[in-house]
Amino acid sequence: MNFSLKKEIVTKIIGMVEPALSRNSSLPHLSHIFIEGGDNTISISTTDLDVSILLSIPTKTKNKKKESLLVDPRVLSGVVSHALSPVVDIQKKGTVLEVKQKNYKSEIQTMDSDEFPAISESQSKDSVCIPSSVFLLALSQVVNSTSSMETKPELTGMLLHITNNDITLTTTDGFRLSEKKIFQKNVIKEEIKQIIPLKTVQALLRVFQDSEDDVCITTEENQVFFQGRVGLINALVVSNIIDGSYPAYENIIPKDFTVSFLVNKSNLVERIRAGSIFSSDSKTIKIDIVDNSMVISSKDTRTGDFDASLPITIQEQKEGEDTEGVSRLLNYQYVLDGLSNIQDKEIVVRVSNGPLFLQGSSVQDYLYLLMPINPNNT
């Protein structure tokens, strides 16, 4: 194995494969990156047995015979980062990996690659392709609502639902729910529903962040494959799926609202941030509807209190209901998370007897539900 790569490319690919490195000390070979070179291609991969990342980079290799090794990514990254020239020469010499430039040489101890598991590639030719910018935006809009409760493993991932007309990504932790729809025609034999681990979602955001091409999704019985190009790099992310059934969350989306109104997003964000300064350790703020205004308040015995109002435009009001009685306690960080994922300048807020409903006023492909801390608080 003998090849040359730009220093910035080496640093980039190490960062791209890092999310699939194992932290299990009993499997040291999985905490290393697998490098295979030969026939003008370099392949770099990592796996923790749940998520695998494989990158292939075309480059001139000085031998056609394929050779492989395992190397500590922290050591390789450190050595390359201190190189002065823009290109580094990398060569396998026995059990070491030599990284050199003029007047600069490091020899890194490696591990035998025989124990590194082969990363499977999809055998199916049926795939659904999405522009990477659209896909990454969708992932970023739902990633914060996943649960960390291991007692409910199905909530620790993202529901991927593909039909012939759209792709829906959904996450919930029981306190809030994010749903993003990507409207596009898909050619599939039957609809797909799989729960993708949070770790995989985070890996996808890292691997494809600089991609300008499509990300293509292929599913098999127990795995899902995401493939695309990042510049000259061919990238593949392979993930196991989470067993179990995702909750029928459609049943908790309110169909009946006490009041629905429009409010300016940036003004609402600033008022909530100001109110958070005086919030207690529970991160609560109070929202009241008073005289066509939204009143935001918070109070803490140690720091003081806050009170501010924003003008709103009432869209709908349940017959016989008085908006003066609408009052909710909310987790301000959860509210800010939802608002940050809405692209519109104007926000539609719908208040029900259960969740609070947030959505853009014109682009309605994303919705965010938030449970009040006490739904009956007034």
Score class of each variant (00 low, 15 high):
residue 263 V to C: 09
residue 284 T to A: 15
residue 295 V to D: 09
residue 281 D to M: 12
residue 258 T to F: 07
residue 307 D to H: 08
residue 288 D to T: 07
residue 254 P to K: 02
residue 290 V to H: 06
residue 304 G to A: 07
residue 280 S to K: 06
residue 273 R to S: 12
residue 270 E to G: 09
residue 285 I to R: 00
residue 308 A to S: 15
residue 299 K to N: 05
residue 256 D to P: 05
residue 280 S to G: 15
residue 288 D to I: 10
residue 276 S to K: 03
residue 306 F to I: 12
residue 285 I to N: 05
residue 257 F to E: 03
residue 262 L to A: 10
residue 268 L to Q: 03
residue 274 A to M: 11
residue 299 K to L: 10
residue 274 A to I: 11
residue 269 V to S: 10
residue 257 F to M: 05
residue 283 K to Q: 13
residue 295 V to F: 13
residue 263 V to H: 01
residue 309 S to M: 11
residue 306 F to D: 02
residue 298 S to Y: 00
residue 268 L to F: 09
residue 266 S to R: 03
residue 271 R to P: 06
residue 289 I to P: 00
residue 270 E to C: 08
residue 266 S to Q: 06
residue 295 V to N: 11
residue 294 M to R: 01
residue 304 G to P: 02
residue 283 K to H: 12
residue 267 N to K: 03
residue 303 T to C: 06
residue 272 I to T: 05
residue 270 E to P: 01
residue 280 S to A: 15
residue 298 S to M: 03
residue 253 I to Y: 00
residue 308 A to R: 00
residue 277 I to L: 15
residue 288 D to S: 09
residue 293 S to T: 15
residue 283 K to S: 14
residue 287 I to T: 11
residue 273 R to Q: 14
residue 265 K to M: 13
residue 278 F to P: 01
residue 297 S to V: 09
residue 257 F to D: 05
residue 288 D to R: 11
residue 255 K to N: 12
residue 287 I to C: 13
residue 286 K to V: 05
residue 260 S to F: 03
residue 300 D to V: 13
residue 265 K to F: 14
residue 271 R to L: 13
residue 305 D to P: 03
residue 281 D to N: 14
residue 290 V to G: 10
residue 253 I to S: 02
residue 303 T to F: 08
residue 267 N to E: 07
residue 253 I to P: 00
residue 275 G to S: 13
residue 264 N to D: 15
residue 302 R to T: 15
residue 294 M to N: 04
residue 285 I to Y: 03
residue 304 G to R: 00
residue 260 S to I: 07
residue 285 I to G: 14
residue 306 F to E: 03
residue 259 V to P: 02
residue 291 D to R: 01
residue 273 R to N: 15
residue 284 T to N: 08
residue 305 D to N: 09
residue 264 N to W: 10
residue 263 V to N: 02
residue 299 K to E: 07
residue 284 T to D: 13
residue 253 I to M: 01
residue 281 D to H: 08
residue 259 V to I: 10
residue 284 T to V: 14
residue 256 D to L: 11
residue 304 G to L: 07
residue 303 T to I: 13
residue 288 D to C: 12
residue 299 K to A: 13
residue 300 D to I: 11
residue 299 K to Q: 04
residue 305 D to C: 05
residue 268 L to P: 03
residue 267 N to D: 08
residue 260 S to A: 08
residue 275 G to N: 09
residue 258 T to V: 05
residue 258 T to L: 04
residue 262 L to R: 03
residue 262 L to T: 05
residue 260 S to N: 06
residue 296 I to N: 01
residue 306 F to W: 00
residue 265 K to Q: 13
residue 294 M to D: 04
residue 257 F to G: 08
residue 274 A to P: 04
residue 270 E to S: 13
residue 280 S to L: 10
residue 305 D to Y: 10
residue 283 K to D: 15
residue 298 S to E: 01
